[in-house]
Amino acid sequence: MLEVDHLNKVYDSHGRRVEAIGDLTFTVPEGQFACVVGPSGCGKTTLLRTLAGLLPPTSGEVQVLRRRVTEPPAGLAVVFQEYGRSLFPWLRVRDNVELPLRAQRIAKARRRELADEALAAVGLAGTGSAYPWQLSGGMQQRVAIARAIAYQPRVLLMDEPFAAVDAQTRADLEDLIRSVWQRLGVTLLFVTHDIDEAVYLGQRVVILSAAPTRVADDLDIDLPADRDQLTTRADPRFTELRSRVYAQIQKVKADPPGKEG
């Protein structure tokens, strides 16, 4: 599970002080699929990097699996937006998937098994010996997802993972993520700027305000667990929820929170 407790993050560079995250508190219970949306520049990526232990908070704290985060926590995997840059171009697809397992000193046979399973799960069985740059963008992101799956994390963070792929691929990848989450039972925090995507994917949508960021709204997505690009998106409830999120975001964009930070 994930706990964000009065998180505050201030960037101080070149003498300019920017408060990216004002005061953020929320909890994602074990096994939940939570989406985080917000207007652009609202510190979504900052939040994710803090959760991943890549960035120390200015004040407040973050807990992953009931441990305070001071460095990248064990049992947590991240899928970055920049798939082209998060895969090692000098390693073949399979070696990319296996590298984190090698760092964990998992035996070779077991590594191979896990990598094969993960690649099959994302529909990439048989591409293990290709180099990442020989694949299309969507396929590269699948490799990054396979790497996360093979790592068998208990918490999975995704930072706008589909922002840079085309619409068709994106729909496929969304369904892939839903099925991965259902199968693995991980706690999943999915950051996106796309409202439709957030509502379609999550069990819950956390809406952030503009910087300095707070939680503007927190919405349960009571759509059925079995989702489908065609029927779910045509569901009146889906339309209703997405309108609510949309209205919220317009509202936080129109009147940013007070500057009392």
């Binding site: 201030v10 101080d12 560079s13 070149h14 003498g15 002080r17």
Partner: peptide
Amino acid sequence: MTRATAGARA
């Protein structure tokens, strides 16, 4: 923090 960054630049 401000002092530290100003120092870091020089």
